Amino acid sequence: MLLACLGVLIVATNAWSHGNHHGGSSSLDPALKGSGPDVHLYRDASCRCCTKWGNALATEGFNVIDHISNDLEAMKRDEGVPADLASCHTAFVEGYVLEGHVPVPSIQRLLREMPEITGLAVPGMPIGSPGMEVAGRTGDRYQVIALQDLGRQTIYDSYQGPNLQKASAR
């Protein structure tokens, strides 16, 4: 029991600090209200990387509507987000689910092409993805995963680093 409690404490401490050492505020910038599609962002109140991601979307014209949630895990489960693709926040746009730090170009492509998928996910919290930028650090390679019916997953886009440069051509 003691070991389980210590494990929860360590994981909780790492998760809390990971979301808050990238700068930013714990609330969205009200001056960045976009006129584009509504994006409903569900996040923990203390997660600053989530607000940085929301502000990045608002800067690109999306109307980000901020929702504080105390039970993100239940929402992810209810919306069919597989546990292995979970991240720190969940958002919705035009009927699609966006899990994690999905880059704006992938969201714009999603809305332009309107594929028959459930949504997009960036598993974990890769350094260099929107909201996870770290000055002086080369960003991680990461993939945007398309969530499909029956739990199928395919690679939608690939990125490298903070400038969101595509690692491979489509």
Rank of each mutant, 00 (worst) to 15 (best):
D66L: 06
Q160D: 09
G161F: 10
G36F: 03
I68L: 13
S87Y: 12
Y159C: 03
R152V: 11
Y96F: 15
W53K: 07
S106I: 07
M1I: 05
A146G: 01
P37M: 01
K76Y: 06
L110W: 05
P82W: 02
E73R: 14
Q108D: 13
G128A: 09
T59W: 06
P123A: 15
L2G: 04
R170K: 13
V11A: 15
L98A: 02
G34T: 03
L32M: 05
C49G: 05
A12T: 10
H40A: 15
D78R: 04
D84A: 14
T59P: 01
I127A: 13
D66R: 01
C50P: 02
V102G: 04
M75A: 13
C49Q: 03
R152I: 09
D38N: 09
E116L: 12
N70S: 14
D78Y: 02
Q153H: 10
A15D: 12
R170N: 12
T59Q: 15
D78G: 00
S46P: 00
G19D: 03
S26M: 10
V64Q: 01
G7T: 14
V39P: 00
H101K: 02
S106G: 07
A74H: 11
H89E: 06
P126R: 07
D38Q: 08
E60F: 02
L85H: 03
A56F: 01
G7K: 08
D78I: 02
N55A: 08
A83K: 14
N55D: 15
S27V: 15
E60Q: 13
C47F: 10
A121Q: 04
G128I: 05
S25K: 10
A15G: 13
S27Y: 08
P126D: 13
Y142G: 02
D157R: 03
N70H: 14
C88V: 11
T118S: 10
G23T: 05
H89I: 12
P115L: 11
D44S: 15
N63S: 07
V39W: 03
T51D: 08
L28R: 02
Y142S: 03
D78L: 05
C50T: 08
Y142V: 10
D71F: 10
I10E: 03
A83H: 11
A15S: 14
Y96D: 09
A74K: 13
G124Q: 05
Q148Y: 06
L6R: 07
R112C: 07
A83T: 15
S87H: 09
V134E: 13
G139T: 03
L41Y: 03
G124E: 05
N14E: 09
Q165H: 12
I68G: 03
T138Q: 13
W53C: 00
H40Q: 14
H40E: 15
V134Q: 08
P130R: 02
M125I: 06
P126V: 07
E99G: 06
D44Q: 13
H89Y: 08
H40L: 15
K33M: 11
L120F: 10
V97P: 00
H21R: 14
T51V: 09
C49F: 10
L9Y: 13
E79S: 13
G119Y: 10
G23Q: 04
V81D: 01
G139E: 02
Q148I: 01
L120H: 05
G100Y: 06
S69A: 14
I117T: 01
Y159N: 03
P126W: 10
G61H: 08
L98S: 00
D157V: 01
H22W: 08
C88W: 04
K166E: 14
Q153Y: 06
K166A: 12
S69N: 11
E94H: 12
D66F: 11
R112H: 11
V144R: 00
